[in-house]
Amino acid sequence: MTSTVLFYLLSVVSIVFALGVLFNPNPIFSALYLVLTMIGMSLMFFNLEAYFIGGVQLIVYAGAVTVLFVMVLMLFDLKKEKQAFTKGLFSSLLKYFSAGALLFMISGASLMSMGLMTEGAEKAEPITTKQLAALLFTDYFFAFEVLGIILLVVAIGAVTISRIRGGTHAK
């Protein structure tokens, strides 16, 4: 019962704040709405008994990534944008229509698969972090190491890209 109430509350909160990211013309407010959306999603992970993923979501997204966004926005000193959205009535109508059609199709597919997987077929105890760690350091060890290398490459690449003066006529 608590989980049901929590699900509806969190889903409404997440969707409303995600709409805030979409429709607010000021990028700073978009970033702050993004933080609230991420917190809502992480609580939803807690509701799904994925405690480790929820905690990582809270640290990585709501902590690190959105702080990075806000810091870059502060660096640029952007004001409220006069034209935050793309031009063209026809193309925006087409975009909204195609997004609506996609949502309709996905929700139709998930509605049809509603009865396929029900909770409590054999309700085992929730997945623990210990299980997760054991799997990560045995079966997925190679992927884990590759991920470390990717992060190193990205760190070097980000520094290199932001030092480029830009264009073919760079001095």
Binding site: T37, K95, L103, S110
Partner: peptide
């Protein structure tokens, strides 16, 4: 059930897609 979570995931995905497009 599963369908509810899938619907919320789809809605947030579509909102993100519209953000990229608009």
């Amino acid at each position: 059930g599963l369908g509810h979570y899938l619907f919320v995931g789809a809605a947030i995905f579509i909102i993100g897609m519209l953000t990229v497009l608009m």
